[in-house]
Amino acid sequence: MEFKDYYKVMGVARDATEAQIKQAYRKLARKYHPDVSKEKDAEARFKDLGEAYEVLRSPEKRAAYDQLGTGPRAGEQFRPPPDWGSGFEFSGAGPGAGDADYSDFFESLFGAAGRGSARRGRHGFDTGRGEDHHAKVLLDLEATLHGGSRSFTLRVPEIDAEGRVATKERVLNVQVPKGILPGQTIRLAGQGAPGHGAPGHGAPGQGAAGPGAPGDLYIEVEFQPHPLYRIDDRDVYLDLPVAPWEAALGATVKTPTPTGAVDLKIPPGAHAGSKLRLKSRGIPASPPGDFYVVLQIALPAAGDDKAKAAYRAMADALPFNPRASLGV
């Protein structure tokens, strides 16, 4: 198991005050909040940050964590000492509330029960209907292009008879609707928390949403990074390498698209970064997104004498200063 240096994650000294820790958390949270940030690894950074803050903001957890010292040297595996954590009591609500998904490191130290208490409670509802649950999944691009079934593994915190919180894994097979966009939601009726009260408690004919009925599950969708394509809302992007002569003279080249390979016409005089749009070939939402090809100029290697001669001939024939715009 990997040791986590929570002080390093938050960028604070080991003797930082509570105020400094809170300040550091707020600052980094604004930077890496997945709803705000464009940083590539925002989601993971924000998760680490929430976990670090959960430990360092609580005097008890912080004191317990500090007993571990600075952790093993790089490459060494971490194991909590056998007597670790005795005499500490953990309490308090976390910043990430119920949906936080902590690392194995965190769980080995504080247990699943160390997580902040979820936003629970009845909130004035007394219908006996189970709570709605929320989850987030990463889909492959193909799922939205063609639709089809996918298997999701969700981690569900559950409270056992003694009131302890444990995380249970749950596997759901779901038909992904074609054309779903990042940030949109799949609703699965009746897949949330079970209803309160004995089964059959509600009067017959009350339907699925009646008293004692289970809550719903809302799955927020994001996409996994694709080896070829980038997704921006409903549009799909591809970096397409072309030879210098294809860009300069124009050419028709084979290019992959999410819906199959096509012959793409490159106009003469294209340059690196030129964008070609294939309308409605992005994500098949309504309206459908577009497919953009961004040209990258690839240079053939000057590997042998023949290639070198070709480059020299080009240098002789073309009066070209690529740095003219830099004033040199």
Partner: peptide, 29 residues
């Protein structure tokens, strides 16, 4: 990808739903 036989039908919630204050209140507790 899985065979389509034994999976829960999902739909894009945003496209079909009309929600009330109490729906949103319940959904987000």
């Amino acid at each position: 990808p899985l065979p389509d036989g034994e999976s829960l039908p999902g739909e894009i919630f945003e496209e079909s739903a009309v929600l009330t204050v109490s729906d949103l209140s319940r959904m987000f507790a």
